[in-house]
Simulated assay, not measured.
Amino acid sequence: MAPTAQYDTVIVGGGPAGLTAALALTRYRHRTLVVESPAPPRNAASRGVHGMIGLEGATPVEVRARAWAELDGYGLAERREATVEDLARADDGGFRAVMSDGTVAWSRTVLLATGVTDVLPEGVAGFAECWGRSVIHCPFCAGWENAERTWGLIADDPDYAALAADAFRAWSADVIALAPPGMDRAAEIRARLRGAGSDLVEGEITRLHHHDGDLYAVEFADGTRLARQTLLWSPPQRQVPLVARLAENLALALDEDGFVSVGPDKRTSVPGLYAAGDLTTAWEQGAMSAAGAGAAAADALHFARRA
Rank of each mutant, 00 (worst) to 15 (best):
M288N: 15
Q239N: 13
A290Q: 02
T83H: 09
L163P: 07
E202T: 15
F140P: 05
T26F: 04
D184E: 11
G18V: 00
D214A: 13
Y28H: 14
V262I: 05
I11E: 07
D156N: 09
A244G: 10
A39M: 11
P60E: 07
Q237R: 04
E85W: 12
A253P: 07
A247T: 08
E256A: 01
G143V: 06
W106K: 08
Y160E: 09
S107Q: 11
W144I: 09
V270H: 03
A297P: 06
V124T: 10
G182I: 09
D255F: 00
E204T: 13
R64A: 07
G152H: 05
P236A: 02
D72V: 02
L252C: 03
V119Q: 07
L200N: 09
R190Q: 15
R306G: 04
T20Y: 01
R306T: 10
A113E: 06
D72W: 00
F303L: 10
A67G: 01
D91I: 07
G51S: 04
L254C: 08
P40Y: 03
A217G: 06
A291W: 00
D199K: 13
E188F: 07
F95P: 07
T9C: 08
L193W: 13
A293Q: 15
V240M: 14
D156K: 13
P236N: 02
A24T: 10
A221I: 09
A282E: 00
A82N: 09
A45I: 11
L273W: 03
W151Q: 14
D166H: 04
S198V: 15
W144G: 06
A282T: 01
D72P: 01
A275Q: 13
V110N: 00
G57H: 03
D278C: 13
C138N: 02
A125M: 12
A65D: 09
K266Y: 01
A282W: 10
G152A: 11
L252S: 06
F303V: 13
F168D: 07
R194S: 08
G143Q: 08
E129Y: 02
Y274H: 02
A69K: 09
V262P: 04
G51L: 06
A251C: 12
D299A: 15
R42Q: 09
A227K: 08
E248P: 01
T109E: 15
F127H: 03
H137W: 12
A300H: 12
M288Y: 14
R305S: 12
P180I: 05
A69P: 00
R42W: 09
A128R: 02
R169I: 06
T268W: 07
M1D: 11
A177W: 12
L208S: 10
D255I: 00
W233Y: 03
T268N: 09
